[in-house]
Nucleic acid binder design. Structure first.
Length: 328
DNA sequence: AAGTACACCAACCGCGCGAAC
DNA sequence: AGTTCGCGCGGTTGGTGTACT
């Protein structure tokens, strides 16, 4: 059977998103929450296919996304995880909650791959693990279990020698949380309910569970700021980058000098809708207080608590294990 | 100053999977 | 049991900016 295209080719706009389209999409999600992407183009009037909407939200508009400026710690983490997990970017991204799989993938392809090929990487990085096809679900789960342990080992290795580098990361959380409006750092990274197994994709992080679960409250705290930046960016930068006004590059976020937490590349200050209050209607829970956020140290503590957790997940998939065992 | 090559990244494409029917 | 739908994932491409000659 021939698979029909995900959406009608005719009348579907492609290419860079415009700020106006972004606003329409954000407004819609603000009202209805992410998910049910199929309905988004119809209900918003956007001439985009559902997939494109989802991607735009997931990789760019979703709150809590940190863009550009990969830290040394993140870089090392990615290298280790890639060596262990192969090109399973979503899985890798789940360990870097503020990064999207697309972002990590791009960073890998443009920076790290080359770096490692030229011998600049550490010894742990090996060619992507091309694993034999799995013949059964049990095998798949065993592989996942192996992945869990390998990843944990890698994380520990990656983090241990970099303890001294931790402050910037944590400081980012700390300072960002203090940001007007409710705390930038409280988003994905500190969301509390965000397990490593939950997909990095916005939809899976936010969609079904977002409107109803406490765990989903975190990410949307960031929205006020992000939208503010977007709006401000549009006002101040329209046409600044000819063909793709809605797709500022990473260089911009990097150039702001404050490109840390959840730097949505529109950059700028608030034109904000009501800073402090929930922006999305479905945002029913308050921001996760700093004390309940999940800074990197939690990951570390989990890592170092190695054996005590292992037995819990022996027969479970990565995802099950995550939900019951992972502290983040 | 102009032209070219390279780097970067947002977005697209196709496939696979799971749920619903 | 088979089909359809919706979504997520990974690979790839195209456009833009920047560095180099």
């Amino acid at each position: 059977m021939v698979r029909p295209p995900c959406c009608d080719k005719e009348g579907v706009k492609k290419g860079p998103w415009t700020p106006e389209e972004d606003l329409v999409l954000v407004s819609y999600i603000q009202e209805h929450g992410p998910g049910n992407w199929r309905a988004v183009p119809a209900k918003t009037g956007l001439m985009r296919c559902s997939k494109s909407c989802r991607l735009r939200w997931t990789n760019y508009l979703r709150p809590g996304i940190k863009r550009g400026n990969f830290t040394e710690q993140e870089e090392k983490l990615i290298i280790h995880l890639q060596a262990l997990l192969g090109n399973r970017w979503a899985a890798i991204a789940s360990y870097l909650p503020e990064r999207t799989d697309n972002d990590i993938k791009n960073y890998w392809n443009t920076h790290l791959k080359r770096k490692l090929q030229s011998g600049g990487g550490d010894g742990a990085a090996k060619p992507p693990g091309h694993r034999p096809p799995l013949s059964s679900k049990g095998q798949w789960e065993r592989r996942l279990q192996t992945d869990i342990n390998l990843a944990r080992r890698a994380l520990r290795e990656a983090l241990t020698p970099l303890d001294d580098l931790k402050p910037p990361q944590l400081q980012r959380d700390a300072t960002a949380v203090e940001a007007p409006g409710a705390g930038v750092g409280a988003g994905m990274g500190g969301g509390g309910g965000d397990s490593p197994a939950s997909s990095s994709s916005g939809a899976s992080q936010c969609s079904q569970s977002a409107p109803t679960t406490a765990a989903a409250a975190g990410p949307y705290v960031l929205t006020t700021e992000n939208i503010s930046r977007m709006l401000d960016g549009w006002a101040g930068r329209k046409g600044a980058r000819g063909g793709s006004p809605g797709t500022p590059g990473g260089a911009e976020s990097a150039s702001t000098g404050s490109s840390d937490a959840s730097e949505v590349s529109y950059g700028g200050a608030a034109v904000a809708p009501a800073a402090g209050g929930p922006v999305f209607e479905y945002e029913t829970k308050p921001a996760v207080p700093p004390s309940q956020q999940m800074p990197l140290s939690a990951i570390e503590s989990w890592l170092f608590d190695d054996d005590s957790h292992f037995h819990h997940v022996q027969s479970a998939s990565l995802f099950d294990a995550a939900s019951m065992d992972y502290p983040f």
